[in-house]
Amino acid sequence: MIDESALLESKTLRSSVLDRTDVLDKVKALSLLPDGMHVTTAMVAAYFEVTVEVVRQLTKRHREELEVNGMAVLRGSDLRQFESDNMSLSLASYPQARRSLTIYSRRAVLNVTMLLRDSHVARQVRTYLLDMEYSGRTQPVDNLPGPDTVLLDDRIDQRITHILGKTVVPMFNALIAASGEHRRELIELREDIENVERTLCRHHRRISTLEEEIPADRVRDSIAAMTWQAFERHVADLLRRDGCSDVVVRQTRIDRGIDITARTADGRTVAVRCKNRAGHRHVPSSDMQRFAGAARAVERVDVALFVTTSYFSHEAQAVADLGGVLTVDREELGAWSAGARLRALR
């Protein structure tokens, strides 16, 4: 079994377990801001029972790694908007004239866990995390309960789904592209693999519903309360969760049509447009035309994705279909946020 100190030294090892943010609450409750997604530097320090200065120094040393995993420094209008949306005791205790605020996603907090040496809480989380990883890798398949029982460990489902989506399916894609006489058989085999992946995803959602891990109402309410900046960060977190790398959130008020860029697990380039609108306001065709032009004509990405908290007008959907833009409306966004993977990212 890997020693917990290995996490302190290996960035690759840290990256391999960053999706296991649930381990934070198994060791100690992590209090979140009202948006249900972020914490401040003071809240991180309180969780790990260290001083704020310790967290600040760690952040300076590992800023690039932490920013990739959800840490952000808010200033100016972004800071004022975030404070307005998250008025609480946790923020009200800060000086009103502060110029910036550092916030962390749960993924970033887990990242801090694997960098913070002198915290007994961080050591407990690292040990617990590696114990779970070790158990997941060494548990014999014969010891698993039947597939029809809700006692099936959904961590194994997610691990298998991850392997299928990131290795097996891309391998079949490459074989199909290079094959001749066996092309039909390979396509049928790929379809069988994708059916298994979809079945595992449905099973995971069923387990989540039965255990009330992420109630649909809570997901919708959380998204509805987000600012446009928070919504873009939320979509970026979903991209990372689904295996994307090099995720960059531009977060600028200058409208160039593309809000997020990323790369899928199999190397395809991704451009995302995020539109945070009230549920009754449809995305117009003009917005879709601007994004399609930026994604296809200017940056020439492989996957163009338009995500909205509302719905698309008929004209906007027609433009998307014509320009090869994949659309995610309010209903699909809710399912994606609750744990379903986007087929376009597989």
Results as ranks from 00 to 15, higher is better:
27 V>F: 04
127 T>L: 07
146 G>S: 09
40 T>Y: 00
333 L>T: 13
77 S>G: 04
125 V>G: 06
15 S>V: 15
99 R>H: 09
231 F>G: 02
235 V>C: 07
300 R>P: 04
150 V>T: 14
316 A>Y: 09
118 D>V: 01
64 E>K: 10
256 R>G: 02
72 A>V: 07
305 L>W: 03
270 V>T: 02
283 V>T: 11
31 S>I: 04
70 G>K: 00
30 L>A: 02
5 S>I: 10
184 R>D: 12
116 L>C: 02
197 E>H: 14
330 R>W: 10
311 Y>M: 12
195 N>P: 03
128 Y>N: 07
161 T>F: 08
144 L>M: 09
74 L>W: 05
241 R>Q: 10
311 Y>H: 13
247 V>E: 04
237 D>K: 05
46 A>N: 05
170 P>W: 01
64 E>F: 06
48 F>C: 02
305 L>K: 01
292 A>L: 07
114 M>T: 13
293 G>I: 03
324 G>S: 06
219 V>Q: 10
199 T>P: 03
211 E>M: 14
239 L>Y: 09
167 T>R: 14
68 V>R: 11
11 K>H: 13
122 A>S: 05
90 S>K: 10
165 G>F: 08
341 R>L: 13
337 S>Q: 11
304 A>R: 01
311 Y>S: 14
321 D>Y: 12
286 S>Q: 07
189 L>P: 06
260 I>S: 03
317 Q>A: 15
